[in-house]
């Protein structure tokens, strides 16, 4: 187990080095001068040069790369080019929006998808199965931002129960903050839940056909008991894999939802920073997101071991094909 974690940690570190090189290289060749963007079209050359110097953009590329990595390793992140504050100061409040949002959305996804998926599998071919699968088909087809607009129309514009967007900040209290996050979380969760419910259903169906399930039924367990005691654990492995992917998506892929609900999260920050050529913010964020996705992947792998004791003895991945 320790050996496994060490291997994964090295792989994660190498991934991050590669990600840092790629993002730095891409930002180097991307056309656009941050100083010109900040000062606009009337700026004089000497003013632009003064600003570039104060932002350290006059240094050679390899030096800037090393300075950046050094800063990352020592926790000394540089100042954002546009906001002129340390990136950490920008990031913390954004993560305080995006992470709870992603967790809320994931919780909702799981809370909806697992019971419905199992139910559909257990009632295969019957009305409940048809209804659940029909609803999930619809859920997959509806884009989340459109669902978001519909939710705003209903709950903010017509009923006035919830704010139409924006985020009051956690300092305004947990209630208002959660009220601002609940609609975006639902908009994110429903399409994901639809996908996960289908995965759960097919995974449970597969398990139900296994020999050991027949054995369990033969020794007198009801289908529910057999599923609960012997089936679910095995059925969960593909479900957890998809959940891991979905969590990564919910962390990094919420740009559109954050725009629709006007939430100051990571997605919108990175989107803005790219437009403003705030290369300092973009590169830190990309590496941060890569790290988060990497960590989630490691956690998913570890959970396989928890779910399937056979996998603890070294045959992680591959053992279940």
């Amino acid at each position: 187990m320790a050996w496994f974690i060490a291997k994964r940690a090295v792989a994660l570190a190498l991934t991050l080095v590669a990600a840092s090189l790629v993002v730095f290289g891409v930002l180097e060749v991307l056309p656009g001068d941050p100083a010109l963007l900040i000062l606009g079209v009337n700026a004089r050359e000497d003013t632009l040069a003064a600003l570039r110097e104060s932002m350290g953009l006059d240094q050679p590329a390899h030096w800037r790369y090393l300075a950046w990595i050094g800063g990352l390793l020592t926790g000394q992140l540089a100042d954002s080019l546009t906001y002129d504050v340390p990136v950490t100061e920008l990031l913390v409040p954004r993560i305080a929006v995006s992470l709870p949002l992603a967790l809320m959305a994931l919780t909702l996804t799981v809370a909806l998808a697992l019971p419905l998926g199992v139910l559909a599998a257990a009632r295969r071919g019957r009305a409940a199965d048809g209804a659940i699968m029909g609803a999930s088909q619809l859920g997959i087809a509806v884009p989340n931002f459109w669902l978001g607009i519909l939710l705003i129309l209903l709950f903010a514009v017509t009923l006035r129960w919830l704010p139409s967007g924006g985020f009051p900040g956690w300092e305004a209290g947990v209630g208002p903050a959660l009220a601002a996050l609940i609609m975006p979380a639902v908009a994110l969760a429903l399409p994901q839940a639809a996908i996960l419910a289908r995965v759960t259903r097919s995974s449970v169906l597969e398990v139900l056909g296994e020999d050991y399930m027949r054995t369990a039924r033969a020794k007198g367990l009801s289908q529910g008991e057999a599923l609960w005691h012997h089936g679910l654990r095995n059925a969960l492995i593909p479900v957890v894999t998809i959940m891991g992917l979905q969590f990564s998506f919910l962390l990094a892929g919420t740009i559109i939802i954050e725009n629709v609900f006007n939430l100051p999260g990571i997605g919108r920050l990175i989107f803005q920073a790219i437009g403003q050529r705030d290369i300092v913010v973009v590169r830190d964020l990309v590496v941060l997101l890569a790290a988060m996705v990497g960590v989630v992947n490691v956690l998913v792998d570890l959970s396989y071991a928890v779910l399937d004791p056979r996998l603890r003895r070294g045959h992680l991945r591959g053992a279940h094909g």
Binding site: S164, G165, N262
Partner: peptide, 18 residues
């Protein structure tokens, strides 16, 4: 001053009284 970049979101904010 509230910053709302999305046109649909800005409409909703006015309509909802936000």
């Amino acid at each position: 001053f509230r910053f709302i970049p999305d046109p649909a979101a800005s409409m909703a904010a006015l309509m909802a009284g936000d």
